[in-house]
């Protein structure tokens, strides 16, 4: 495991140029989370069109792993339903060995969401103290979806 495997170019790209950065005018759901140990902060805002996510905004600050993970996540959840997002989250958490078997999120034959760029984060698994960085945005996402609808 080398540093190049952890800091893949796609991760650094999302870190330098985070996608969907900012805030929504009228979010349907909103949540913010902080990792008190390291101070990383992420705010997620979601707008729905019917049962699908139409807009996502991510704000916050922190390390390349937390910010790139949230950036890639914001791209991956667009157009998805709540159920599909939960499935994606499950696959991501599996990949990070947070629960269930490692690597099942990478099996292309499994039904449901495909991780895509997010697979680049699997190198983080070898750095246990950094897994919480990668998972911060996802925890905030689930909190947003479980929260009260704002509009």
């Amino acid at each position: 495991m080398s540093l190049e495997d952890l800091y893949r170019e796609v991760i650094l790209d999302h870190y330098r140029s985070p996608r969907n950065k900012g805030h929504l005018d009228k979010p349907d759901y909103r949540a913010e989370g902080v990792n008190p140990l390291c101070g990383d902060e992420i705010t997620i805002e979601l707008a729905f069109d019917g049962d699908q996510v139409s807009q996502v905004a991510v704000a916050g600050q922190g390390c390349s792993i937390s910010q790139s993970s949230a950036s890639m996540m914001s791209e991956a959840i667009k157009g998805k339903t709540k159920g599909e997002i939960e499935d994606l989250t499950k696959r991501f958490r599996d990949m990070m060995s947070l629960d269930g078997e490692a690597d099942i999120g990478l099996d292309p034959d499994r039904p449901g969401a495909v991780l895509g760029d997010l697979e680049s984060l699997q190198g983080v698994r070898k750095y246990p103290v950094r897994i919480k960085c990668a998972s911060l945005g996802w925890n905030v996402l689930l909190e947003a979806l479980d929260g009260e609808r704002l509009s």
Partner: peptide, 29 residues
């Protein structure tokens, strides 16, 4: 362009142990 936690991870791979974070001094940060 490099967050302190990324710095600490990279330095660790190079065998250097440093602390990264707010050092229990958030108002100073």
């Amino acid at each position: 362009g490099v967050h302190a936690h990324d710095l600490a991870t990279i330095l660790d791979e190079e065998g250097v142990a440093v602390r990264a974070g707010h050092h229990c001094a958030k108002p100073l940060m």
